[in-house]
């Protein structure tokens, strides 16, 4: 097996006053070693919830209700059953994360270097090694050693996100989850950060899960792409396949929303009407049927199952495009 992580039947739910929201509905996913997998979808589709579930950062009123997240390390570990010290040592050492809110994830009253030191010390990195490591990873992320003595508020948004990347890499994790790492930044900085991430991935042979709502950003970083809708992956496959030959009507709609610049006059622009389904009440049939431009009566009755449409390209639709 060349997989780093295998997720089976994962259900992450949030208990609210109105009822239990199923943010992830029996989700299956394999992450290959060394790949960049982009998770794409609208807000509320469950892609961020998946990232937080892997990190075990889902907190009350949320919980992982069912399923397993198996990490294939020297021996297989089910992340969902980790507790106490084992959970602590898993976080950041095995899987690290770059969060969206670059501004707020750094402790405002601690110097940058101290925020490295406590993470490195928590994972038993030799004291003599710590200082060198901080400089090394700051440099990799494109920052000089001067940053070490500064406080977060003295850095720009882009610099803070670079610090966060360096911080996430500092314990040399097997998997890096980047949750909308560039969304809060302006376009120029966004491009630079994406470039750094790509370079780092090649240099260090990282495995990356890249979460984004922006399919063009996903296209620029990913090897594979997974399209999220209403708590499930509706299409997954190699980037070129998904972009050039989308098989799910939802993927097609998402893609058409970004190619406006190259769209010829008269060409159909599919715009989606309606809202994603309410995740409290059980969904009957296909979750996308109410917005699908090519829905048929059967879509209301039968749940689509995942089917292989071409090499490594799966889609969850009763009538995939092009068949």
């Amino acid at each position: 097996m060349n997989d780093l992580l295998s997720i089976r039947g994962l259900e992450t739910v949030f208990d609210t006053k109105r009822g239990t929201v199923k943010a992830l509905r029996s989700l299956d996913l394999d992450i290959h070693k060394g790949e960049t997998l982009a998770l794409v979808g609208e807000s509320g589709s469950g892609k961020s919830t998946l990232g937080l579930s892997i990190m075990r950062l889902i907190e009350s009123p949320g919980r992982i209700a069912e399923g397993s997240i198996i990490l294939h390390a020297t021996e297989d570990v089910d992340v969902t059953s980790l507790k106490g010290g084992k959970l602590r040592r898993f976080r950041w050492k095995k899987v690290a994360m770059v969060f969206q809110s670059a501004m707020n994830v750094l402790n405002p009253v601690m110097r940058i270097e101290d925020q490295f030191i406590d993470a490195l010390e928590a994972h038993d990195i030799d004291k003599s090694e710590i200082s060198g490591r901080i400089d090394h990873y700051l440099k990799l992320a494109g920052l000089g050693p001067k940053v070490r003595r500064l406080y977060p508020h003295e850095l720009s948004g882009g610099m803070r996100q670079r610090v966060n990347i360096a911080l996430a890499l500092s314990c040399e994790p097997d998997l890096l989850i980047a949750d909308e790492p560039t969304t809060a930044l302006d376009v120029v900085v966004q491009k630079e950060i994406l470039k750094s991430l790509n370079t780092l991935k090649k240099q260090l042979g990282l495995t990356i899960i890249f979460i984004t709502h922006d399919i063009s950003v996903a296209a620029s970083v990913a090897d594979r792409m997974a399209i999220f809708y209403a708590g499930r992956i509706v299409e997954i496959g190699p980037k070129e396949e998904v972009i050039n030959r989308p098989r799910h009507p939802y993927s097609k709609a998402l893609l058409s929303s970004i190619i406006t610049l190259n769209t010829k006059r008269g060409q159909d622009l599919i715009s989606l009407k309606g809202n994603p389904p309410d995740l409290i009440t059980p969904i009957e049939g296909c979750s996308f049927h109410n917005r699908c431009p090519s829905a048929r009566p059967e879509c209301l009755k039968y749940k689509p199952v995942e089917s292989l449409v071409s090499s490594d390209h799966y889609v969850e639709c009763l009538y995939p495009i092009g068949e």
Binding site: L57, R88, W92, L106, A122
Partner: peptide, 11 residues
């Protein structure tokens, strides 16, 4: 967010 981050760091 920095409290979540601190937990993520395995502190």
């Amino acid at each position: 967010d920095y409290i979540t981050m601190a937990k993520a760091k395995g502190l």
